[in-house]
Design a protein around this nucleic acid. Sequence first.
DNA 1: TCAATATACTGAAACGTTACAGATTGCCAA
DNA 2: TTGGCAATCTGTAACGTTTCAGTATATTGA
Lengths: 347, 347
Amino acid sequence: MDRDETDKDDAVSAHERPTLKTLAFMTGLGVTTVSRALKDAPEIGAETRRRVQLVARQIGYRPNRAGVRLRTGKTNVISLVLNTEREIMSFVSDIIYGVSEVIADTPYHLIVTPYSRSQDPLDPVKYLVETGSADGVIISRTQPNDPRARYMLERGIPFATHGRTDMGLVHPYHDFDNYAFAAEAVRHLAGIGRRRLALVTPPVGLTYYGHTVNGFADALGEVDASEVRFNTVSIDQSIDQIRTRTAQLMRREVRPDGFVSSAAAATLAIVAGIEDAGLKLGRDVDVVSKQSSELLHLFRRELLVVNEDFRLAGTELARAVLGWIGGAAPGSLQTVVKPGEVLSYRG
Amino acid sequence: MDRDETDKDDAVSAHERPTLKTLAFMTGLGVTTVSRALKDAPEIGAETRRRVQLVARQIGYRPNRAGVRLRTGKTNVISLVLNTEREIMSFVSDIIYGVSEVIADTPYHLIVTPYSRSQDPLDPVKYLVETGSADGVIISRTQPNDPRARYMLERGIPFATHGRTDMGLVHPYHDFDNYAFAAEAVRHLAGIGRRRLALVTPPVGLTYYGHTVNGFADALGEVDASEVRFNTVSIDQSIDQIRTRTAQLMRREVRPDGFVSSAAAATLAIVAGIEDAGLKLGRDVDVVSKQSSELLHLFRRELLVVNEDFRLAGTELARAVLGWIGGAAPGSLQTVVKPGEVLSYRG
DNA sequence: TCAATATACTGAAACGTTACAGATTGCCAA
DNA sequence: TTGGCAATCTGTAACGTTTCAGTATATTGA
């Protein structure tokens, strides 16, 4: 016969994980009372409350997530929805770290929900909502008219977008002011005498594509400089493509003497392309680039950079979603961060 | 009175999520039968089985995770445990993508469990095990005598380590052959005439520190070259520190004419340090570096690189954990990937 | 004194799933 | 005919939690 297993019902066996039942047995109270005592319900006596909480802490009680989830529907999960294919040299880790930092002292877990190029970006969001797998969702690669945001708004599930939408619908977001970035970059280049500027745009279709293009165009109107069209290139393309196209462009008669680049990886390719064409950075052409980790100055000292903090994006997005879940007004959970100034590492 | 809510018991109201009860009602069977039919249990008639599965597919039935988890203890969750502070320019996203790819067509979710520098690395693992939050765990920054691996082995929870341990205990792992990398790098440098080699090591304490150091030392014994000690530097340090130290080293009388670097970010700093000292890459000194994304050749064409595929690491680690969960022998789930050859982009 | 009320606590039910221990039916051997 | 058995199917309980509808006991108001 077994001699390790204790008797039939609710004996508190040595190393099982404690449940409310365990606590109830230890305190001599009912499970209901214990449950309420742990969440500071008002109808529980002050002393009982303290006693229960003490015992709970002593034996390391942790509520069973499945139990809570089954009963209440609350998952205590935030999902970060990510495209697994684009965005080389990716900022993804920074966002994850930022989100993690915020949810570290909450009961929330972070799940990563990927989708691939071939899929409809709506799929993973639908999955999450239909299966009730998360209390809140964070999405990126936001579009002006974003079906995912619309969908979640309809279903009433809290979410935050990395980047803004433009649908006349209110929801939390965090965004970097790419309009200001592009405009500032243009002004800076004009300020150092550059007159023919090219823009390496964000992926067409995303909201910040428009912001960037507008900032670029508007600032061009203010200064004594003109645009050299470089429409065929966006940062979503491969390094090799960007490099080749840049080299082609720089061999033309009318070539840019300044670039504005929306991403560090693209900048590497642009510089390579410039040099392929036999030109020299800082002499023949200047490049202003966004970067998310401070490494570009090591690449070429002549690069002009503006930092974008993706870890901050992560923390803000997490705060926004948690805020919405916590009942805050979605409209109050919108942040746009201004770019810092254009940094130079020359001399 | 409400007119939207249907009558009391088990009416199948329009847009509630279907459960086994819904299916039971629709098929006219009992919940037990439906449950078993869905998992192809042998005691269910073939036709019934097909019928249930058809209906389930039609109405988009998805098992409720909380229900399954509460009943069976199975979480259908894999946790990736990450240090949130080290590893700039991080490979983290690649690993995540790799893991995601593998679990995409399984019921598993991926949760990211972070820990910070100040914490004991054992904490997050303890948390996961004690709260039963995952069926399997993936850890990185593996040490020869790794308390986390030991702990999980004791508790019998499936896991895989990125990097090997050296405790005489058997568990799944995936590793890059850093011994071979370092040795190959030394041979390559010796082959192009470099005689005084310095090693920028992985973080002291991690298993692959030892592998790298040994590979470096053993290969030095084979070729006509010697080591220039550069002990104070590992890839865990800040970019600025590495750069400064490298510059100092390169200004000494006896300076290295070759470097072996274990990480791309460190390599950027090393090259910067070399150039700070007024020396030229490819002429005065050569650097062989590992890289996880193919960008270093854009940085300096003279760099010699060996690629390490972290996405592969992710897929292998995920496969290993799933394999163990699925009952495979842990000893059969160990992979070491050989480095490719040293690549040059000159001429 | 008695009813009303506040205080502190409690059992039962339910969330969706699976495991256990049957129940029903038809078929075959004896 | 009947007992046995295989083939199918089913109800109940349990996982741990919270909510609902109470139940006791003490306290108050008249």
